[in-house]
Amino acid sequence: MPDLSVELAGIPLRNPLLLASGIWGESGQSLIGAWDAGAGGVVTKSIGSRPRPGYPNPTVEEFDSWGMLNAMGLPNPGIAEYPREIRAAREHGVLVIGSIFGGSAEEFARLAREMATTGVIAIELNLSCPHAEGFGTEIGSDPKDVEEVIRAAVREVKVPVIAKITPNAADPAELAVAAERAGAKGISAINTVRGLAIDTTLARPVLAHGIGGLSGPAIKSVGLAAVWQIYRRVRIPIVGIGGISSGKDVLEYVMAGARAVEIGTAVAREGVRVFGRIAQELDRALSERGTDRLVSLVGAAHRGFEMPTADFLP
C-alpha cells in the first residue's frame, strides 16, 4: 500500500486531503463527519470577531457540472461562540485547522490568539474572500498588507500560521513570498475566483450580493497555475485548492508543488464520501506508477522543466 501520509508545517497528517474552509464547518458534528469519512484534517469556516449572518439568499448558483458560484458573505457564529464546535471535534480526535478573517492586522492578531487556545493544529488566515467588503481580497491583494497581517498573527501564536491567498491579484506568487517573509509556515492557494451570474429573463444578477466566488472543476487549472508559480518562489509547504474531485486531480496538484490539498465543492456533489473515494483513487494511481510515498512526488513536474523562450526570429 502506498504511503499517503504527509507532513504539513511540522504536523503529520494521515493523508493530504483536507476539508476546505466554508464547507461543512459550522458544527463540530459536521467536522467529525468529514474526519470519519477519511479526511486527513479539516479547516473550519472562517471565524470573525462577532456573529455574522452573511448575505441574504440567493447565496449560491450551481452550474451543470463545471462549477458553482457563491457569495455566502462569511457567515459565522463569532470567535466567542465557535470554540465549542472545535472542542467537540477535538474531543473526537479530529485534526482541526482554524480559519479566521479580519479587517485589520490587529483584528487578525486578536482572532489568532483566541483561535490558538482552542486546540487547533494550525491557523489559516483567510486573506482572500472575493465577496466581503473590508475583508479578504481587499486586504489580501497587496503584498505589504499581507506581510503586516501575517507578522501580527505569527507574533501572537505558537501554532503554524498558514496564509490563504487570492487568485484575484496580478501575481499570487508575490503574495506568497510576502507571507513567507513575514513568518507564515504554509500557503493555501487558491480561494474562489471572482465571478458573476446574470439571469437574462430578469436582467439582474442571480446572487443577492451580485459578485461571488467561482469554485469547482472550472477553476482547477487556475489553482494549479498558482501552486506551480508559488512553488518556484517559496520554500514553505503549499496546500493546493481549486476544483479537486479525483485522485488524478490531487496528483496534479502534488506534482505542481502542493503538499496537501483542500476539497470543497466536490463535497456538495457527493457528500464527505468524496474523501474515501479520492484516497482510494490516489492509492491506485500511486500503485500503478510504482510510487511508494506520495511525498516523493511533491513538485515532481518542476524537475527538469525549463521554460522555452519564444524570441522573435533574427
Partner: peptide, 20 residues
C-alpha cells in the same frame, strides 16, 4: 437554509444536513 446542496452547513442538525 442557504445552499440546499449539502455544502454550507447552515441546516446542520446533529450529524445530518436537512437539505440532503
Amino acid at each position: 437554509m442557504k445552499c440546499a446542496l449539502g455544502m454550507c452547513d447552515a441546516c446542520s442538525l446533529g450529524p445530518y444536513h436537512v437539505c440532503v
